[in-house]
């Protein structure tokens, strides 16, 4: 069986909403805004990774743990998608 989980940018936005360094800004972000330019700090980016791992029940491998994987909502969506989809059960 192949499980497909569609990750929407709304899913990512909900997770971003909980990150303090971006608080209050998430609604105003476009999918391509650079989150680091919007105030995401290195502490915040780790908190974001943890929140995504928890929400989607995934673990990011080391090679995806870099700035470009988490720079924009679109990039995060694609990073998360490469891990959760497809999952062979």
């Amino acid at each position: 069986m192949v499980l497909r989980m569609m990750i929407s940018s709304q899913d990512i936005r909900e997770t971003l909403g909980g990150i303090e360094s971006l608080s209050g800004q998430v609604d105003r972000l476009s999918d391509d805004d650079d989150l680091f330019d919007k105030g995401l700090c290195s502490f915040g980016s780790v908190q974001l990774m943890l929140a995504l791992e928890e929400r989607f029940n995934i673990e990011f491998p080391d090679h995806l743990l870099n700035r470009t994987s988490f720079a924009t909502i679109r990039a995060i969506r694609s990073t998360v998608t490469t891990i959760v989809e497809p999952v062979d059960a």
């Binding site: 502490f43 780790v46 990774m49 943890l50 791992e53 673990e59 990011f60 080391d62 743990l65």
Partner: peptide, 9 residues
């Protein structure tokens, strides 16, 4: 902080 997400191996 970084160690919270680093994987081993």
């Amino acid at each position: 902080n970084l160690l919270l997400v680093q994987k081993g191996g």
